[in-house]
Design a protein around this nucleic acid. Structure first.
Length: 553
RNA sequence: GUCCCCGUAGCUCAGUGGAUAGAGCGCGGGACUUCUAAUCCCGGCGUCGCAGGUUCGAAUCCUGCCGGGGACACCA
């Protein structure tokens, strides 16, 4: 149990007791106890008097005074309880009690911040899932950073989260890729390609794939582009490109527990099965020569075609089969990270989940908005279609994994972002990643000198951490478990970068104001303990983001 | 036309129905013979797009409107 929660529960308990004594036990539910948004309103605050005044037919202030008095006397870890403003109660924690958070952090070690928000539920997070027809682009990096961080955050929040990459290696685009490879091979074998057919990838990277194929199959001669040949080349290219994507993601610190291939699902006749299953449920009808899923019955805008009049499936069918399979695999939560162009897809997929009898509110879609690259205030153009684009691999090479991940995670996933290349490259105070890492490096440096020095081993004394800047740092450290839990429940990884910036700031202020090593031994001991705790939380938090913790900078 | 997301400080953005709406950047000033100055300290009057509504209380919830972006295929 986290320290701040202990205080929160003690206060809620006290409030419940007091309301019970007033003959209103039901009002205890109104007791919110939160960290105030503004400093100067205590460590924790409640608006319960404002909420309870009406049902009790009295003024908030009339409740605040006696309740404050009661809580002051009944809750030991409180230093003060103040009635303030229109009827808020502001609580200040006893500093030595708060200082014990340093021990909590030491004792819990890597478990600090773990919480049970997920109650053991299994979660499948599907993300990136880029078509295997080219290198990963920038927005895939954003999805990778967000999906991976969400998995890490949920895994310390009582969920069992798995990461999954879905490979669309069975659709038309594979044929087009095959065609592009075929044409490139022809080029390499001396043909001149007059013009590129519509829809065939002209990207330069295809030349490399073609070259590689020829190296492995020197006898191949590109003459007739038969469907079989194009399909075979497409499969070959898809696997080469998918494998390159996997490597780039690995460099980026992102690995997947599962890779699911559309082709495997097709081979297992999953599309046939899902159509059959929907037919058995009586939610399919034929019209205009096609088979339709009556998704409007389940809240969708319009019904969706499953089987076209030419007898082939729409892309929705394999996707539907895939999502059904996710739930069948025993996941309690299915989370998809999708691009903004897919939001129309949410309604039909949720309708499907509902039709199949799974819990639609356990199907979450996080929309990952577009990323625009900016340098010196100007847009850096990227366009996959034109064959020129900025690849994720280039971005990583240019700004490094840590800066890239931090910038992607800093903002709410579902708002469009400008990625400032100039700022990310900067190894200076303006770069927020270095600001946080610098705090860790400073602590490492201090602790190194501490270990190398001659000193007595004392038990550190919490009462010695009483300076305002020490207290501020203690309080930020105590908030960490809350931040992690909220990030997990709200699916909001951006809470962590913000928190870590605050933590680094609290540390830098403290460090600038106070000496650590050349104080009286007992003071040094307490501050060393505080530094260790800070380093520990910085490391845990950066770890959840997949960002390194340097010992030197 | 229908639906979704977004409009908050010069810029980039936080903001969980609560108090005087906050950070970073930029700009100006100051601080190192001291454990890493990649740091710290000081400086913030903004129609929270507009108008209604709900509420003791709204940037936050509801309705309408304005502006920006996106989605609305028997394409994937």
């Amino acid at each position: 149990m986290a320290r701040l929660d202990d205080a929160r529960f003690a206060i809620q308990e006290g409030i419940a007791q007091w309301f019970a004594r007033q003959g209103h036990p039901e009002l205890a539910d109104l007791a919110d106890v939160d960290v105030p948004t503004e400093t100067g309103h205590g460590d924790l605050t409640t608006s319960v008097c404002l909420r309870a005044a009406k049902p009790m037919r009295t003024a908030p202030q009339a409740l605040a005074q006696p309740l404050a008095e009661f809580l002051r006397q009944s809750i030991p870890m409180l230093a003060s309880v103040e009635a303030a403003g229109p009827g808020f109660l502001n609580f200040t924690l006893q500093t030595p009690w708060l200082a014990q958070v340093v021990n909590d952090i030491r004792v819990q070690g890597p478990q600090y911040g773990h919480n049970d928000a997920g109650q053991g539920q299994r979660v499948l997070i599907e993300f990136v899932s880029a078509n295997p027809t080219g290198p990963l682009v920038i927005v895939s990096g954003r999805a990778a950073a967000v999906g991976d961080a969400m998995a890490r955050i949920m895994n310390v929040s009582g969920y069992h989260a798995d990461r999954e990459f879905y490979v669309n290696n069975a659709g038309n685009q594979i044929g087009k890729l095959g065609h592009a490879i075929f044409l490139r091979i022809q080029e390499l074998q001396g043909h001149i390609i007059e013009e590129w057919p519509e829809g065939v990838y002209p990207g330069e990277y295809v030349i490399e794939v073609a070259r590689q194929y020829l190296k492995q199959h020197p006898a191949f001669v590109a003459e007739q582009p038969t469907p079989d040949t194009l399909w075979m080349l497409g499969q070959y290219g898809a696997e080469v490109l998918r494998s390159e994507q996997e490597q780039v993601l690995k460099t980026f610190g992102v690995t997947f527990e599962h890779w699911t291939f559309e082709k495997d699902l097709r081979d297992q006749q999953a599309p046939e099965h899902i159509v059959q299953r929907l037919e058995d449920l009586g939610v399919v009808q034929e019209a205009e020569g096609a088979k339709w899923f009556m998704s409007t019955r389940f809240g969708d805008d319009k019904d969706r075609v499953l089987v076209k009049s030419d007898g082939t499936y729409t892309y929705f069918v394999p996707d539907a089969a895939y999502h059904a399979q996710k739930f069948e695999r025993g996941y309690d939560w299915v989370i998809d990270l999708l691009g903004p162009d897919h939001h129309g897809y949410i309604g039909r997929m949720r309708a499907l989940v509902t039709a199949l009898g799974y819990a639609p509110d356990h199907f979450d879609v996080m929309i990952i908005q577009l990323v625009r690259l900016v340098r010196d205030g100007e847009l850096v153009r990227m366009s996959k279609r034109g064959g020129q684009f900025v690849a994720l691999a280039d971005l990583i090479e240019e700004v490094g994994v840590d800066a890239a991940r931090f910038f992607f995670l800093e903002r709410a996933p579902n708002t469009p972002m400008d990625f400032d290349l100039g700022l990310a490259e900067l190894k200076s105070n303006d770069n927020p990643v270095f600001y946080i890492q610098y705090a860790a490096a400073r602590i490492h440096s201090v602790l190194r000198q501490w270990r190398e020095s001659v000193h007595a081993e004392l038990i550190w004394e919490p009462a010695l951490l009483s300076q305002p800047l020490e207290r501020r740092l203690l309080f930020v450290l105590a908030r960490y478990p809350d931040i992690v839990r909220r990030a997990a429940l709200d699916r909001a990884p951006q809470y962590l970068p913000k928190y870590l910036t605050e933590l680094a700031q609290a540390f830098h202020s403290f460090y600038r104001q106070h000496r650590i090593l050349d104080e009286a031994p007992a003071v040094t001991m307490a501050r060393v303990a505080l530094c260790e705790a800070t380093l520990s939380v910085l490391s845990l938090g950066l770890g959840l983001l997949g960002i390194s913790v340097p010992e030197h900078m």
